[in-house]
Structure formats: C-alpha cells, structure tokens
C-alpha cells in the first residue's frame, strides 16, 4: 500500500510532498530575507557594546561553515544511497550528516558564549539583538534539520518510511541544502563583507 503514493497521479508530475517542500522553502526565503534585512540595517549600530569587526572570529566561523557545507555533501550521499535502496549507507550518511550538523551547532553555541563573554549580549545593542536573532534563527533551523535526520534514521531502521523512502530522504535533503545555502548567504553578508 505504501508504494501507491509514488504511483499516485499528480497534474504536474511532482509529488505533493516535494511541491509542498519547495513552496515552504520559498516562504522561508522571505523569512530569512526579513531577518537579514533587519541585520543589514542594524549591523553597525551599537552605543555601548562591541562592534562586528571587534568580535568576529573569521577563521573559526569559516571552518564551521566548511563543516556545514561538508554536511551537504554527506546528505547527497545519503540521498543517493536511499535511491539505491541501500539502507545501511543511507543510515550511515544520515548519521554523519546529523553529527556534522550538531558540530556546527556546537560551534555556534561556542561562538555565542564567547561573544557574550566579550560583552555582546542579546540586549546590549541593536547589533547584538539582530545578530543573535538572525544566527539564532538559522541555528534553530539546523537543529530542526538534525531532528529530522535523526527521525529519518529511526524510520529507516524500523523500515517504516511510508511511500518512497528515497523521496522522504530527498525532502529532508532539500531542507538541509536550503539551510546550508542560507548559511552561505549569512556567512558572506554577516561575517565577510566588512561593515
């Protein structure tokens, strides 16, 4: 019964879930667009606390961005394994992706803590408020992604992904790549372009 979903006819030929995910990601673009605009407007505004250039640790963030990028690679591997119906490798790469994601979030938690110690609190300045809001939202998205990956691992293990396994993995993959791409934008705009 599970496989009927694949065969189910849709007008566009795309599955409902995939189309839905694309639309959701389109909507997310506007969400991050709004947050990034807020940050760009406020990035230099601080009366008491430190300024962007004074606390950013570019080498560290570059490495953590690289780790997140690598996780996109492993996600691709997971999707291709799922397409081959290779449960073992699907699970393996999903797990690796999740761990890489967790490493990234760990790096972000470290960064937040370090910034806070150096005097940039959430309420210190406009820069602080908008920085933490933007990167925090992204961090939450990564975390949700990790939870989705973990859930996928559980589902694959229990052989319980209904419909097409590969498509479900692909959907989570779409989300994961989106989160990665958003990070590239944030990393470039927030960290690299001097304010």
């Amino acid at each position: 019964m599970a496989d009927t979903a694949v065969a189910h006819h849709t007008t566009t030929g795309l599955s409902n879930n995939k189309l839905g995910m694309w639309l959701f990601l389109g909507s997310e673009c506007l969400l991050f667009g709004g947050l990034i605009s807020t940050y760009m407007l406020y990035r230099g505004r601080t009366n008491t606390g430190p300024q962007p250039d004074q606390i950013y640790d570019i080498p560290f963030t570059s490495v953590s961005s690289f780790v997140l990028l690598m996780s996109s690679l492993t996600m691709v591997l997971a999707v291709s394994a799922a397409n081959r119906k290779d449960d073992r490798n699907t699970n393996l790469w999903l797990t690796v992706t999740a761990i890489l994601g967790a490493t990234f979030v760990g790096g972000q938690v470290y960064e937040f803590t370090a910034f806070y110690r150096e005097g940039l609190g959430f309420t210190t300045s406009l820069f602080g408020s908008s920085f933490y809001t933007l990167t925090g939202f992204h961090g939450v998205h990564v975390t949700v992604g990790i939870i989705m990956l973990m859930a996928l691992v559980g589902m694959v293990r229990r052989n319980r992904i209904p419909g097409s396994k590969a498509e479900t993995v692909e959907l989570v993959g779409l989300y994961w790549h989106f989160v990665d791409i958003i990070w590239i934008v944030i990393f470039t705009l927030v960290y690299l372009i001097p304010s």
Partner: peptide, 22 residues
C-alpha cells in the same frame, strides 16, 4: 507575505518578552 509579518512579530515579541532593542 506571512513570513515577512512573522519576522516583524518575532522582532516585536523579542522586544517585549526578552528586552531586545529592535
């Protein structure tokens, strides 16, 4: 349109609930 107002509402609620400075 909804994500845009969502951002605005988040900023306002962060301001009201967590003393953000937006």
């Amino acid at each position: 349109a909804m994500p845009v107002i969502t951002v605005a509402l988040f900023l306002l609620s962060f301001q009201r609930e967590f003393d953000a400075t937006f």
